[in-house]
Simulated scan of single mutants.
Amino acid sequence: MSETENSVRRPGPWDPRPEDPAPEAVRPARGAPQEDKGQHPVWAVVSTLLMAGFLWYLTGSWIVAGAVLFGLFVHEYGHVLAMNRVGMGPARIYIIPFLGGLAKGQREPKSEWHGVLVSLAGPAFGLLAMIPFVAAGVILRSPEWLLGAFSIAMVNLVNLAPAPPLDGAKALGPVLTRIHPRLEQIALLAVGGLAVWWGLSTGRLILAVFLGIAVLGHLRRGVWRAAWGRLSWPEAGRSLGLYLLTGTLCAAAAIGALLPMTGGAVEPAFETGLRFIGFGGR
């Protein structure tokens, strides 16, 4: 026997109780920002392969190219960890062919101090990528593996240059603007100009063009420090100290990676590092 439309049906055990309001569909707030899903998997693979091929073209070694690519991922993952820690996540990693990588959060940092921490987390954490290459170089007595470790350290060190849009500008810029916003603008534009000249004079044309576009963009923006506040003087002191400490660690790691090749002699290792960034004899 079936029930008719006019019959009264007794509520079943899964029916909502009369006192419970009917559930409403959860709708996203109108105008709410969409969460960044990151690179499409296919494009991520293609970008990584293009970057690997470009690095091999520059270095002539699959080991060194693989080291730089691995170091790039570890560097960006350091930014991701810091972003997630300070409430900017979930952060995503993007590989940009011929240029490098980018870690992108879902929201701006809550303070300049958080921004400094995120900027320095990449170079500091990125040094961990050296460990397997140093170990392989020492065990196999292979200079190529040691050069891979050295290249990882140098990528992190160069990234600390206070030239927009590198991490060094984002870490040191807030310290300069604590004194005066114009000081940050003048100093970073001057360093950015020198970085462009360095790229052109050492044959790093793609890097020079990339930095030049970034410098022009910041010049058009004017005083570009964001409106989420300034560092306090104690925070500025800590930021400067962390910046110098991170730079010292990167430089020491780069020289240390070459010491097994030079019999422990620091001076030849230092000269090799200078040649890598375009200074000193060939």
Rank of each mutant, 00 (worst) to 15 (best):
S7G: 10
V8I: 10
P18A: 10
E19Y: 09
A29V: 12
R30M: 07
A32R: 03
P33Y: 08
P33D: 06
H40P: 06
W43T: 15
W43V: 14
A44K: 11
V45M: 12
L49N: 00
L50E: 06
L55P: 06
L58P: 03
W62K: 00
A67L: 06
L69C: 04
L69H: 05
G71T: 00
G71Q: 07
F73Q: 03
H75S: 09
E76P: 09
L81N: 04
N84Q: 00
R85W: 12
R85Y: 09
M88A: 01
A91D: 07
R92Q: 14
F98R: 12
G100C: 09
L102K: 05
A103D: 14
A103E: 09
K104N: 08
K110W: 01
S111H: 10
W113R: 14
H114W: 06
G122N: 05
L127N: 00
M130C: 05
M130Q: 15
I131V: 15
I131T: 04
I131L: 09
F133T: 00
F133Q: 06
F133N: 01
V134K: 02
V138L: 05
L140A: 15
S142M: 05
E144I: 11
G148S: 04
A149Q: 01
L157W: 07
N159D: 07
A163T: 07
G168M: 06
A169S: 15
L172A: 15
P174M: 10
V175W: 02
L176N: 08
R182Q: 08
E184R: 15
Q185A: 12
G193V: 10
W198V: 10
G199H: 07
T202D: 08
G203T: 13
I206N: 02
G212K: 02
A214R: 00
L216R: 07
G217L: 01
G217Q: 12
H218G: 02
R221Y: 01
A226E: 15
W233D: 14
L240V: 03
L242Y: 10
Y243K: 10
L245P: 01
L245K: 05
A252M: 02
A257D: 06
L259H: 09
M261P: 03
P268I: 11
F270A: 14
G273N: 08
L274M: 14
R275V: 01
G278Y: 08
G281I: 02
R282K: 07
R282P: 11
